[in-house]
Nucleic acid binder design. Sequence first.
DNA 1: GCGCCTCTAGACCGGACGGTCCAGCCTCTC
DNA 2: GAGAGGCTGGACCGTCCGGTCTAGAGGCGC
Lengths: 185, 185
Amino acid sequence: MSETSLPTRDRLITTAARLFRSQGYNGTGMAQILAEAKAPKGSLYHHFPAGKEDLALAAADWASAGMLQIINDSFEPAATYAQGAATLCHKLARLFDLSGGRDGCPVASILLADPGNRVFRDRAAGIMGKWTRAIAYHAIRLGSDEAQAEERAENLLIAIQGAWVLGRARGSSDVLRQVPARFPG
Amino acid sequence: MSETSLPTRDRLITTAARLFRSQGYNGTGMAQILAEAKAPKGSLYHHFPAGKEDLALAAADWASAGMLQIINDSFEPAATYAQGAATLCHKLARLFDLSGGRDGCPVASILLADPGNRVFRDRAAGIMGKWTRAIAYHAIRLGSDEAQAEERAENLLIAIQGAWVLGRARGSSDVLRQVPARFPG
DNA sequence: GCGCCTCTAGACCGGACGGTCCAGCCTCTC
DNA sequence: GAGAGGCTGGACCGTCCGGTCTAGAGGCGC
């Protein structure tokens, strides 16, 4: 965990993102976040006045940025859309394994715990929209027309989300690895 | 809620299943389940000695039986696999709308809150395996060979799970309704 | 040195959490 | 009618929850 050397605020965000992702928003207490981030309570409420919800939104945004990075890293060197999609699934499968076969979608686990929370839900929809647009952008760049690009991007995101759920249940990244073969569209 | 007239034990199971599904396992307190099921604490710990975990497993099993029923109801009258799959997605979309656009996979929301819990995770994997086998059974009945049936069933389950996640974020059943068109395989 | 402001440190709070316990009711059996 | 056992009702418990508050440490410009 190179989290250790970061400034307090970033340490809180990355630690919260990691814990929320594997234990869920409601399953993770502030005390644990504070302890693992080695930060006192005062600092947390200084940086995130609205408390847990503030921190969760920041953690989700941070996780989303990481996901966008992975999407771009996967598609940029790709010669075809299919190749980029395959690389993306492969990278996500590796990260899944690194988490001990536990971590699914970072945004879903943080922001979709209680869909009654409109702020969380809207943010989740916004973030996933960004992901779709990022994938669609590369699809167009790699030869798809606009309509097909949008469809491909959405299909890929649905498949990845489904694979994350099944993969968590089975504790295996196989589902994620099979996505490109199962859904070549 | 026709839950009201059921015997206490069943009232607890159905109420717990409903609340866990929309608020998550960790987001739902025993007090709320007890209040909405109109049952006293003593009864709960009489019927489910191990408490919340016991109740969650029973609720997941009950929800799984409901899902199997929907799968069978969808595929039995179908003339082709594609038709059965379309009916299934349509039925799930209707239920999704009835929940106010909130409820995703009942089993995932109950048993996958913390994948560190092996009992929960194994049960989730077992239940989803049942669903896959049920779908595959109908695929074979409707003309698929065994290998294709298994692949089709798994594909459909992945797509539905993904659509549940995206649908929750957007508060819309559209994703679920589009699954048959997006993933005809 | 001084005042200022950001950030740290942790004691403290009320309430909600899951769980225990037991007295008593109701029904079923003899 | 007596006794037994399944079930109910709810008081009660220790723990952990997210959040507040205040005292002061540390770096900055002047």
